[in-house]
Simulated scan of single mutants.
Amino acid sequence: MKFKAALLAAALAGVAITATPSSAEEVFNAPVATRQADESGLQTAIFAGGCFWGIEAIFSHTRGVQSAVSGYHGGTQQQASYSLVSSGVTGHAEAVKVVYDPSVVRYDQLLQILFSVGADPTLLNRQGPDHGTQYRSAIVPMNAEQRAVAQAYLAQMGRSGVWDRPIVVAIENPRAFYEAEEYHQDFSLRNPTNPYIRRWDAPKVEALREEFPQLYRSTFRTG
């Protein structure tokens, strides 16, 4: 599933979009909207973009990601269960907590990946066949630097002219993240022939390989 990755990457990089780059790789060395050169050590990010199976699979195949864990963000601990979250009334979103090495993959690159191959940022409370507030797209900045990057990213994406509809991605304040049930973890790795995985999530991983070859990892990072 591809969402105009090259133009989207150009929008984030802050470069003038006068022509379509031949590949996303061409803009990776361009200056990013907000400098992140001072990052050191492992960092944590939380993203929501529809069903967490596919988002976890994408980041598990991304170089520099140390772990990608499916879970729930936005509601209470008492309501952090799949049966309740699926009702759409808990305030939780299906989300993925990503621990990454910023010396290998930057936060803005994770955002590029998320909205290039993972989730359509113009869809409100739905992705693919899934509908409800639990499937909303959201960025959860864990610090001021991530928030600045996320704000610049969304603003530039909105100005880019790449999308025919408004960007509806929310920036949410961090709350407790609750890991999903064990059977949800590494779901695409454990269930490669599952019809949902084959139809909706395997194409996202393939798009990651094609659009971001320098950040794609063939092995699946578990945990």
Score class of each variant (00 low, 15 high):
P129V: 05
A5H: 04
Y153I: 00
I197V: 15
V65K: 05
L111P: 01
E26S: 14
L110T: 03
H73C: 09
A16C: 12
R35K: 14
Q134A: 03
Q66G: 05
S60N: 08
F47D: 03
R190A: 08
A95R: 03
G14P: 00
G41N: 09
K2T: 13
L124D: 03
A207F: 08
I113R: 01
L7C: 11
L215N: 02
P174M: 07
F59Q: 07
A45Q: 08
R209P: 05
G75C: 10
E26D: 14
G74M: 07
G128N: 06
H131L: 13
D101N: 15
G88Q: 08
F28N: 05
G50N: 04
T18H: 10
V149D: 01
G158L: 02
A68L: 08
A37M: 08
C51R: 01
V168Q: 01
Y153S: 09
Q43A: 12
A37Q: 13
H92L: 10
P141F: 05
A10N: 01
A24C: 12
L189S: 06
R35P: 12
T90K: 11
S188R: 04
T76R: 13
V168M: 04
A45V: 10
H73F: 06
S86M: 13
S81H: 14
F115R: 01
T122Q: 05
Y216A: 05
Y107E: 07
R221M: 15
V162C: 07
E94V: 06
A80N: 02
P102K: 09
E26W: 05
Q134Y: 04
L123S: 14
F212R: 03
Y183R: 11
G88V: 07
L7F: 11
L208Y: 01
A150M: 01
Q127R: 07
N125M: 07
N29Y: 10
I171P: 01
N194D: 15
A176D: 15
L8D: 02
T90Q: 10
Y72V: 04
A68D: 08
D101W: 10
Q43K: 15
Y178F: 15
A180S: 13
S83Y: 14
S83C: 12
N143T: 05
I197F: 03
S67Y: 00
